[in-house]
Amino acid sequence: MTAAVIAIENVSKSYGDVLALDDVTLQVQPGEIYALLGLNGAGKTTLIRALLGMVRPTSGHVAVFGRPLTDRSTWSRVGYLVESASAYPELTVRENLDIARRLHRVTDKAAVDEAIDLFGLAAYADRTAKHLSLGNVQRLGLAKALLHRPELVLLDEPINGLDPAGIVEIRHLLVDLAAAGTTMLVSSHLLAEVARIATRIAVLHQGQLIAELGADELATRVRPHLEVASADLHDAARALQQAGLDPHTNTCVLTLEDPASVAHPERISTVLVQAGAPPTRLVVVEEDLETYFLRLTEAPPRRDGQAPVHA
């Protein structure tokens, strides 16, 4: 088995009475794009900071490339962008990148120009960072994170501030990097965007890892439901209840979540026709990642010491 690029074992982190991370265990394998999802305050940034040695876990163990974080040689193989991108405001884009180049021990000065070209910053290369738009500061932050061609990239909300074209551009870049063997851990609140690129998805909630699944497993984990529209929703709902079902009323449709209804919408149609409230529309809807995420985070996190829900 290939050694994990990131290995987090039973990591907890407390700030006084606040438990930011609660016994988190996860591994990221080489070449993965590992997505970390969570609400604000879920512990995503704390986890990334713990991975970078910026905060010390109260308990547990963190290893990157199989080595403890005290091994400084690891950092030449790691690129990161934590929270919002930042830059020295009075320095130009080129100078900011040159500082990153020097501190990453990159001797080839051409790396700066390559990063400028890769992130579409050529037009702003000699502009001071304080005069950049939010999107271009984000591009600069990403360029700093990737300038030294790291093997592992930790990105906290990498597409914040980017316009739609920029989002697509960065998405392609991340996919290309992963295809070239770069391992990535990406935290984001843009669930649909994460679903497009991630090879594995973890959900962090109240400091706990409550779910971890492969992107291809998402389809088996999400719950489909049946949406029923009728000219008279009230009568339709009553008919379904009399048939022993449990319809939920939305603004203009009824939803049925039980597997039998989803598997056999024709039976629902028969019930409604016989009750004199024929359906005007019957459709099986797949739960999207956002709904799945909300369903997971609405449930209380497990406190029984059991492993989180893995697919």
């Binding site: 970078l52 040695g53 910026m54 400084r72 040689s73 950092w75 030449s76 790691v78 990161y80 934590v82 929270e83 919002s84 930042s86 830059a87 020295y88 405001p89 990153a100 501190l103 990453h104 021990r105 700093k144």
Partner: peptide
């Protein structure tokens, strides 16, 4: 103040 401290913390340079 410029929020650049975090960029100095996980580098090959100690």
């Amino acid at each position: 103040s410029d929020r650049t401290a975090k960029d100095l913390l996980a580098l090959p340079v100690a």
